[in-house]
């Protein structure tokens, strides 16, 4: 499957695949984006990963539009041959319901389920981080069961605390920083998804997988203290392809 290339203003190119949104498309986009960011910083700038597209900024004072496309085509050929990292699997502890998940009840009643059933469906799946966006480090996760899909709130909240775990239609997500939002909140994690002081400020990266683990209030508080004193180590599994040499 080949990319189509279109101008996006006079300094960016949108390269897009006419394919279904899935994990292998996501991995192809990530390896392209990584390659550009690591090897082509002289002519290309920011790269934004979408569900099945890349938006690539280029410097028109260095390279013409058609030269930039030729270069991107070459990079696609190179990265297509590289083996790809399977990504990591990160466990996110969540305290479901109560004041931390005020919409758990409405998600349950919308789907004719008990709140326990919603929790077990939400925490059984493995979710793929397609890309980050909206606010810094906000993960767009794929893989939620349609059994707990619920429309957004009619009136978005003005302020949602960091760590809130929400559901909007058939998507689930985690708010990394305080922001407004209309997702239905089912729980909260004490883990920081965005930490400005850390060497790598983002816990999650495109291509990672996320699982949610239900925790009780005492464990939530315990992890919260560990996070505050910078003693918390997230539970991360590294899944690698057999024929892999890429960085993790």
């Amino acid at each position: 499957m080949k990319f189509s290339y279109k101008p996006a203003g006079d300094s960016s190119i949108l390269m897009e695949l006419e394919v279904e949104i899935n994990e292998s498309t996501n991995r192809r986009l990530i390896s392209l984006a990584d390659f550009i960011e690591q090897n082509e910083q002289d002519v290309f700038g920011e790269v934004i990963i979408g569900y099945r597209s890349l938006l690539v900024q280029y410097n028109p004072l260095q390279i013409s539009y058609s030269q930039a496309i030729d270069k991107l085509k070459n990079i696609d050929v190179i990265t297509d041959k590289l083996s790809r990292d399977e990504g990591r699997e990160i466990e996110i502890p969540v305290l479901y319901g109560g004041e931390y998940g005020p919409d758990l009840i409405s998600v349950a009643s919308h789907n004719n389920l008990s709140t326990e059933e919603v929790i077990s469906i939400h925490s059984e799946s493995r979710y793929l981080v397609y890309f980050l966006g909206f606010t810094p480090g906000y993960p767009f996760l794929g893989g939620m069961s349609s059994k707990i899909a619920t429309p957004r709130l009619e009136k978005p909240r003005i302020s949602i605390p960091p760590g809130s775990v929400g559901i909007a239609n058939n998507q689930t997500g985690i708010y990394p920083v305080e922001s407004p939002g209309g997702w239905r909140l089912v729980g909260r994690t004490p883990v920081k998804l965005y930490n400005a002081e850390a060497e790598d400020p983002f816990l999650l990266h495109p291509g990672d997988h996320v699982t949610f683990k239900q925790v009780a209030l005492d464990e939530f508080e315990h992890i919260k203290e560990q996070v505050a004193s910078q003693n918390y180590t997230p539970n991360i599994k590294h899944n690698k392809n057999k024929n892999i040499e890429a960085t993790s």
Binding site: A8, G9, S11, S12, L14, E16, I21, I48, I49, G50, Y51, R52, S53, L54, L55, Q57, G133, F140
Partner: peptide, 10 residues
């Protein structure tokens, strides 16, 4: 459309 990157000036 399917969500994609937004550029300055879009």
């Amino acid at each position: 459309i399917i969500s994609e990157g937004i550029f300055f000036g879009a």
